[in-house]
Amino acid sequence: MAEKIIERVAGRACVVRGTDIDTDRIIPARYLRCVTFDGLGEHAFRDDREQAKGDHPLDDERFAGAKILVVGENFGCGSSREHAPQSLMRFGFQAFVGGSFAEIFAGNCTALGLPCVTLAGGDLAALMDSIDLDPSQELVVDLVARTVTARIGSLAAGIRDGTRKALLEGSWNATNQLREAGGAIEAVAEALPYTRGFQG
């Protein structure tokens, strides 16, 4: 069973500035008290938004309906909670453009079919400024061409080869792919002495 093929995400963008934005900020831990991911969208950046009293990018009318979230360096650092990308996805984001992403966060995004692409520092700053000036412009995150296109032009976008391939081929639900190994899994297990309790 293959997943959806993701070649590009097009839409308006929202800019959240700042470095090292951690997953506790993306979704505070008290909203992890749940047994499904349903309804997490409303809790995205919950504390930051409440403190900003309406002056947070996610509450900015100009960014309403944005599909692409543009962020700074080391976005998504901290905990492994998949609730973080789940909440952003359920809020409406389908792709992330940033300076860099924390490893577990990026992996969780891939598992949900949400591309995370990186831009060089100067390009990212220019893109953020451009979106702030004209939030109505459409961005295209193009995984085929490895670019992010906006009013300021076409910018070279970074994405790990394997991740790109998984998204382009619709093989980003790893369970299906891992199952294809069949009996090779048990063969590796049996060769490991600890799976037999080190019995001679």
Binding site: I104, G107, A111, G162, T175
Partner: peptide, 20 residues
């Protein structure tokens, strides 16, 4: 490895992870 929930699914279903 610290993993997300979709990867918990992977391990439950296959006892494996896809890792770079």
């Amino acid at each position: 490895f610290g993993i997300g929930t979709s990867q918990v699914r992977d391990v439950l279903a296959t006892q494996c992870l896809a890792m770079a």
